[in-house]
Design a protein around this nucleic acid. Structure first.
Lengths: 353, 353
DNA sequence: TTGTAGGCGTTATCAT
DNA sequence: ATGATAACGCCTACAA
C-alpha cells in the first residue's frame, strides 16, 4: 500500500502519452496492439487503478448511485428497527447498478447527523434513491435540485419526483377478500405498524376499503398498533384481547407482528386458525416456517430495488423525460394461518427437487 | 434537476471568494458570522451540494469505503446464493463508516465482469473490505498495492493483509462439546457447505478437532455436503440416510441446511431431537421459530462488519501500522433441537417485556 | 495511431 | 477574516 500511482507513471513506463493510456483503459480504439500490451503491462505492474474522483470530475459522472434508508432503531424510536426489507431493496439496487457498471453507495440516515450525511452522499452520486422516512420532504426537495431523486415509497406519487413502490392497498385488499369470501369471516381486526409509516397507512387504507367493499363495518383507525416488530405485535394482541372478545381474523400490518401475534395467541390457548385466523405482510423467510405457516402477502422487494435504480438511471440520462410513478403488484401467499388447508404444498414442495 | 451549480456561483451570490465558501462549509473557522449566514443562505438558495469527486480529487480522500461481497447464485454456481449474513455485515460496515461521516460503497462480484467492477470500485474508495470468495487472491494482491484492503474471512490471516473474521472452529467446537458431554452422543455426522468455502472448511476443521479431543473417530471429509442452502441440506440428509443408519446427531454447517434437514427428518418419521439431534450455525432469524427451535451458534455479523471497517479506517490513517488479525468469538445458542429441554426460555422470554 | 492542452470543482497554501 | 491561485488525476477535443 504505497502512494497511489497515477496515469502519468503508467504513461512514462510504457513510453506513451497519458491520452493513450486513457484510451487503452476505456475507449478500446485508437492504438496499436503493441501499445496496448505495453500500457496494460505497465498498469498491472504498478497496480494502478484509475482515480474515481478524477474520472468523475472530468467526465461529470461518478458511476455511483446512492441509496438512502432509514435506521429508526438506532435513533431510539420506540422498539422499531430498520425494516428488514431494506436489505432486499439494497440488493436489488446493487444488481441493477452493477448491470450497467455502476456501484451503489448506501447510507442510513439516523438521528440529526443523518441530514448531513444525506447531503454528503448526494454530492458523491449521479442519482439518489430515497427510501420512505429516511429524509424530510424539505431536504428531498433541496437535494433534488442538483441530483435526480427517486422516492421509494408507497404513497401516491409525490409531486415532481419519480417514485416506485409496491401495491400495499391491493395486497391487503386481496387478503381481506380471501378472508371474507373464502372463509366467511365477518369480524376482522387490523394491527397497524408505526402510525407515521406510509406502509402502515397504506395497508390500513387497503383494509378499510376492502371491508367497505364487502359491506362490513370498519373502524377509523387500527384496532391496535405494534410498531412492525414481534414484541410490538405481541403487545398489541394482548391489548386487543383485553379489550374485546377475539375477532374471527387478525390482519397484521407485517409478518413480524403476525409472528408476535401467533406466540401470544398460543399462550392464550387460542388456536390458530381454529379460533382465530392470522395474516401477515411481506413474506419474510420465517413466515413459512411458523406454526401454522403464515398466510401473507409477498412484496417483490428485490425487484422494486432494481426498478428504482433503473428508473433513476433513466432520469440521469434524460433529465427532461416525463416523471414516472411505478407501482408493482403484490402477491397473496396462502398458507395455513388463514384457515386454509393447503397441506403438503407451501414450504415442502421444494423438497421434491 | 437543473445543471449542478458550483462553488463559484455560491461565492458570487454571497459576495465572497470560493475559498471562503469552502471554509464555511468545512473548516468552521476563518470568517465572520455575517459572512457565514450569507454563504449558507446562498448555498441553500441554489440547492448546492459540494461535488464529491472534486473534493475527493483535491483532498485525496473520497470519504467512501467499499465492501465487496460474492454473489454466487447469480453466476449459476450450484444452487448456492449469496450468503444471508452478507446483509448483516454490510449493515455493520455502514454503521462504522457513518460514525465517522463516511459512506459505504457496495458491489457484488459476480461472473467475469466482477473483476472489472472490483477494480472500478477500488478506484472510488479510500479502502476496501473484501469478503471471502468475492475476489481472487491475485486481484486482492494487485489492488492492495494502491488501496488498503481488509480481508473479511476466517482463514488464519493471509500474509500481508489485515483480516477479521469469526471463530468458526471454536463455534463448532462448542457445539460438539455440548453434544458429546451433555447428551452423551458418540455418533456425530457433519454436513458441510460448498467445498471451497472458507467458512465451511473452518467449521469442519473445528468439528474434526473437537471429535478428536473427545476421543471419537472422525472422517476426513464431511459426511455430506449441502451448499449452505435449504434444498441442499435436505438433499444431503437424504443421501446421508440412504447410506447409513441415522447418527445420534447431525451437525450442519449452517442454519439453512439444518432447516432443510429438519424437514427431511420429519417426512422420514425420525423425531428430532428424540431420535436424531440437529444443530446449525449462524442463528438466522428463522432458527428460533423452527420446530423444534434450532440449537446453533451465533456469529456477531454486524459487529464483524463494524470491526472490519474500523480496522480499515485505521489503516487508511496509518498505512505503516502493524498488520492486525481480528477473530471475534461466537456464541453457543442452546435451544431444543440438540435434545435440551429449555422450554419457555428461548424464543418466548421476550414476550414478558 | 498518438500527443498537447484546457478544463472539471474542490482544497490548500500563500499572501494580504 | 479574506482572496488569489496552484495543484489534484483524468478526459477530451483538437492537432499532428
Amino acid at each position: 500500500v504505497t502512494a497511489r500511482s497515477t496515469i502519468y507513471e503508467v504513461a512514462r513506463r510504457s513510453g506513451v502519452s497519458i491520452a493513450t493510456v486513457s484510451r487503452v483503459m476505456h475507449d478500446g480504439v485508437g492504438f496499436s496492439a503493441a501499445t496496448r500490451e505495453r500500457v496494460l503491462a505497465a498498469a498491472a505492474d504498478l497496480g494502478w487503478v484509475p482515480s474515481g474522483p478524477a474520472r468523475g470530475l472530468a467526465s461529470r459522472r461518478a458511476g455511483i448511485v446512492g441509496v438512502l434508508f432509514p435506521d429508526l432503531g438506532a435513533s431510539g424510536e420506540a422498539e422499531e428497527e430498520s425494516p428488514l426489507y431494506v436489505d432486499e431493496v439494497i440488493r436489488g439496487a446493487e444488481r441493477a447498478a452493477t448491470a450497467v457498471g455502476d456501484a451503489v453507495l448506501i447510507a442510513a440516515t439516523r438521528g440529526a447527523s443523518g441530514r448531513d450525511l444525506a447531503y454528503s452522499v448526494a454530492g458523491k452520486v449521479d442519482g439518489l434513491v430515497v427510501m420512505a422516512r429516511s429524509l424530510a420532504e424539505h431536504d428531498i426537495e433541496a437535494i433534488s435540485r442538483s441530483v435526480p431523486i427517486v422516492v421509494f415509497a408507497n404513497r401516491p406519487a409525490r409531486r415532481g419526483h419519480d417514485c416506485v413502490g409496491a401495491d400495499n392497498r391491493g395486497g391487503v385488499g386481496a387478503i381481506v377478500a380471501h378472508l371474507v369470501q373464502e372463509h366467511g369471516y365477518t369480524d376482522l381486526a387490523f394491527v397497524g405498524g408505526p402510525a407515521r409509516s406510509p406502509d402502515s397507512v397504506e395497508r390500513f387504507a387497503g383494509f378499510r376499503k376492502a371491508l367497505n367493499t364487502a359491506g362490513l363495518p370498519v373502524l377509523d383507525s387500527p384496532d391496535a398498533e405494534g410498531g412492525f416488530t414481534e414484541v410490538g405485535g405481541a403487545r398489541a394482541i394482548r391489548a386487543l384481547l383485553a379489550d374485546r372478545r377475539p375477532p374471527h381474523a387478525i390482519v397484521c400490518g407485517n409478518d413480524e407482528m403476525a409472528i408476535g401475534a401467533l406466540a401470544v395467541l398460543r399462550t392464550a390457548k387460542l388456536r390458530v386458525p381454529g379460533e382465530v385466523a392470522v395474516t401477515g405482510f411481506d413474506d419474510i423467510a420465517s413466515a413459512r416456517h411458523m406454526r401454522p405457516p403464515l398466510t401473507t402477502v409477498r412484496q417483490p422487494m428485490r425487484d422494486l430495488g432494481e426498478e428504482a435504480v433503473r428508473v433513476l438511471l433513466e432520469r440521469v440520462n434524460d433529465p427532461d423525460a416525463a416523471r414516472c410513478s411505478v407501482v408493482m403488484p403484490t402477491q397473496l401467499v396462502i398458507r395455513r394461518s388463514c384457515g386454509c388447508r393447503t397441506r403438503s404444498a407451501e414450504g415442502r414442495e421444494w423438497l421434491a427437487s
